[in-house]
């Protein structure tokens, strides 16, 4: 199929309502390949719902969601979308608590996901290599044998980012990565996400304005389910409407 758009991720006119409440209202965003984008907005602005639509958890009432200009995300389910190459980090860290860090990473490792393959699979040296590389990148080398449930909140966030990396997705959707992190960890996370852009397309949802500033990328402001403003952080923060609904005077 010929791509109908050059955008990596193309959302147009998305609407979702729950019992009359419009979580998304004619939302349109597009992300270029390799772009890093921050999405901000007050609670209930539709940030998580937007991610739910992209990852197939929620079906929109109206609108278009295209991946690589040719995959209609509104027709696929979570597993298909994940295997196409869209990875997601959840707002609440959701690592598998009864598996060790290493086992969590192994589950995320890119590869055939069929049950049969899971039975037959033996980790190859290059798999172990990429797992230990990611572990050191997210600072969990010493915690490989620890159970996911025993990690601190910040470590869980890191583990989840590590799992995301091992999936080798084309698009990373990262929901509030800095929540529960110390200032230095937050900066480290921002650096990591910045380093991923280019190779991957990254969309970050965040509340922490310092973190968004550290990302130094284009910002989209959501409000009541649609885009209120888009541009550099200084551009959107000088927007009167944005100041009214979100940043406060």
């Amino acid at each position: 199929m010929i791509p109908v758009t050059q955008a990596m991720l193309y959302l147009d006119g998305l609407s979702v309502s729950f019992d009359g409440f419009k979580a998304l209202n004619n939302l349109s965003i597009d992300l270029a390949p390799g772009e890093l984008r921050a999405v901000i907005g007050p609670n209930g602005a539709g940030k998580s719902t937007m991610m739910d639509v992209i990852t197939g958890k929620t079906r929109p009432d109206a609108g278009v969601a295209l991946f690589l200009g040719r995959h209609d995300l509104t027709l696929l389910d979570e597993t298909q979308i994940a295997n196409l190459g869209i990875g997601r980090k959840f707002q609440k860290p959701s690592v598998i608590e009864t598996l060790t860090v290493e086992e969590n990473l192994e589950l995320a490792l890119v590869g055939n996901r069929s049950p049969w393959q899971a039975i037959m699979q033996i980790l190859r040296p290059q798999d172990r290599h990429s797992m230990s590389e990611v572990a050191s990148r997210v600072g969990l080398t010493d915690a490989l044998d620890q159970l996911g449930g025993t990690l601190s909140h910040g470590q869980k966030q890191w583990l989840e980012i590590g799992m995301l990396l091992l999936q080798e997705p084309k698009v990373l959707l990262v929901d509030e990565p800095a929540a529960g992190m110390t200032d230095s960890e937050t900066l480290k996370t921002a650096e990591l996400l910045k380093s991923l852009a280019g190779e991957h397309t990254v969309m970050v949802v965040e509340h922490d304005m310092e973190f968004v500033e550290a990302l130094g990328c284009k910002v989209t402001v959501l409000h009541e389910g649609h885009v209120l403003a888009e541009g550099s952080l200084s551009h959107v923060s000088s927007n009167d409407e944005v100041v009214d609904v979100y940043l406060g005077r």
Binding site: T55, K57, D77, E78, T79, A82, N83, G87, R88, F90, S94, V95, I96, E97, T98, L99, E103, E106, L107, A108, R113, S114, P115, A118, I119, M120, Q121, M163, Q167
Partner: peptide, 30 residues
């Protein structure tokens, strides 16, 4: 069976089914 990766996917399904799905596993097949 449980000592293979299959077993770890089963545990992941038990503890966090939707997470496993977002990792790209076809939970219903497992």
């Amino acid at each position: 069976l449980l000592a293979t990766k299959f077993g770890r996917v089963l545990v992941a399904v038990r503890d966090s089914e939707s997470r496993t799905r977002f990792l790209g596993y076809r939970v219903e097949h497992f």
